[in-house]
Simulated scan of single mutants.
Amino acid sequence: MAVGTMLYLVYLDGDLDTIADPSLVPLAPGLYLAESTQPRSRLYHAIKRRHAPRRLLVAPLADDPKFKGMQPGALSWLRARRAR
């Protein structure tokens, strides 16, 4: 992970068929990972303005999450991020 970046778990709920947002890595419908240098509040408000979801959760992760059965490419993205 690059210096000054933080990993966040993001949940978006709304009329969002597809999210074309390169800053969000899809895990499952409505569930994403985001890596950002922004503090949580700024990331939250940026996502809120961009996507206008009914429900939104942005939570910082202290470490890389463990997961199984998520979207193809999510684990590869996480591993590549660790290698930086």
Rank of each mutant, 00 (worst) to 15 (best):
A2T: 01
M6N: 06
L7F: 05
L7Q: 07
L7N: 06
Y8V: 08
Y8K: 12
V10D: 05
Y11P: 03
L12R: 02
L16E: 03
D17S: 15
D17V: 09
D17W: 07
D17E: 14
D17P: 06
I19F: 00
I19N: 04
A20E: 06
A20S: 14
P22D: 13
P22M: 00
S23D: 11
S23P: 04
L24E: 10
L24S: 13
V25P: 11
P26L: 02
L27G: 05
L31V: 04
Y32R: 04
L33M: 05
L33V: 02
A34D: 06
S36I: 01
S36V: 00
T37D: 15
Q38W: 10
Q38K: 09
Q38V: 00
P39H: 13
R40E: 15
S41E: 13
L43A: 06
L43D: 02
L43V: 03
Y44G: 10
H45C: 05
H45G: 01
H45E: 11
H45V: 06
A46C: 09
A46I: 01
I47P: 03
I47Y: 00
K48T: 03
K48D: 14
K48E: 15
R49N: 08
H51A: 12
H51T: 15
A52T: 13
R54P: 00
R55V: 08
L56P: 07
A59D: 05
A59M: 09
A59Q: 15
L61P: 06
L61V: 00
D63N: 12
D63Y: 09
P65R: 03
K66T: 01
K66R: 13
K66E: 11
F67L: 08
K68W: 15
K68E: 04
G69Y: 12
M70C: 13
M70K: 09
M70S: 07
P72F: 04
P72E: 03
A74T: 00
L75R: 11
W77S: 07
L78P: 14
L78G: 07
L78N: 04
A80Q: 12
A80E: 11
A80L: 08
A80R: 13
A80F: 02
R82G: 11
R82M: 09
A83W: 10
R84N: 10
R84V: 11
